[in-house]
Write a protein that binds this DNA or RNA. Structure first.
Lengths: 139, 139
DNA sequence: ACAATAATTGCAACATTGTTGCATTTGATA
DNA sequence: TATCAAATGCAACAATGTTGCAATTATTGT
């Protein structure tokens, strides 16, 4: 956790933001996490050590996304999940969501854009691909 | 619209449900629609001709999805969109969402399931694929 | 170390989307 | 046409997210 805190602080300073307790704590939680987690889950983890206003959490997550330090995943249940941008996440990738435990993990690749034919006049910007099923623990 | 109303009524009766004014009206709206539309958009169309309680609309849409007469699309903005199940929609398919006007359309295919390697122990049930970009009107 | 200042935070209030319980109304059927 | 389960409307609630504004805090220059 110590390591994550210092890593988090470094990441934040490198992007010209103030290294506040909240930002560091939130980013550290995401750094420690394997999976994409929800606002709610982050809030629960924070409440144990560093109670923070709901609104501040929303705004901080927004800021971290803007600065490209984390990314948002939309997994079909109207709830955003957040995950640190490690190297593999700088390019687009797919996600897997377990239909039993709702856990989300990041996968490696996306299909080639050029293999997909859109109606004429349409311009493709981004692909969002989510696999759903059972994870190893829930199978 | 006459045609859509009778079609809607037929579809509902074939599935052993009561052909109520609300169900017929809602399904007729969806039959007339090219794109997947939101609860809100349906509500607005209804308000002009057939004011219906918000809750009834939610429950009717749920019922139509259960009966497989329509399907739900989740397009990353926490809002469900609904679209009639025409033949091509009985199997899974992808969607396109315009990032400017938020309109959603249905595309034809999905990538082959077997081309995708999940971590061991994971079981794939469903693929959700959304393309984002600009539609012809917004380009 | 300290004051100044701009960025960040907390609070209260609101907005949107969706759900639940229960009494009332309505469509299908005998 | 009477009956009765199914469908609806209403009120209240829940979850997630947003906005305005005053108070606090991190950084910077001295």
């Amino acid at each position: 956790m110590m390591t994550h805190n210092t890593t988090a602080e470094d990441m934040i300073r490198h992007h010209g933001g103030r290294a506040t307790v909240g930002r560091i704590g939130i980013l550290a939680i995401l750094l420690a996490e394997q999976h994409a987690i929800t606002h709610r889950e982050i809030e629960q983890q924070l409440s144990e050590t560093l109670p923070l206003d709901r609104v501040t959490l929303y705004r901080t997550l927004e800021w971290l996304v803007e600065k490209n330090l984390i990314h948002k995943v939309s997994s079909g249940d109207r709830v955003w999940r957040y995950h640190v941008n490690r190297e593999m996440h700088t390019h687009q990738h797919a996600h897997f969501k377990c239909t039993r435990c709702a856990q989300v993990i990041c996968l490696d690749d996306l299909p080639e854009k050029r293999n997909w034919q859109l109606p004429t006049g349409y311009r493709l910007q981004e692909i969002e691909l989510t696999f759903k099923g059972l994870c190893a623990a829930c199978c």
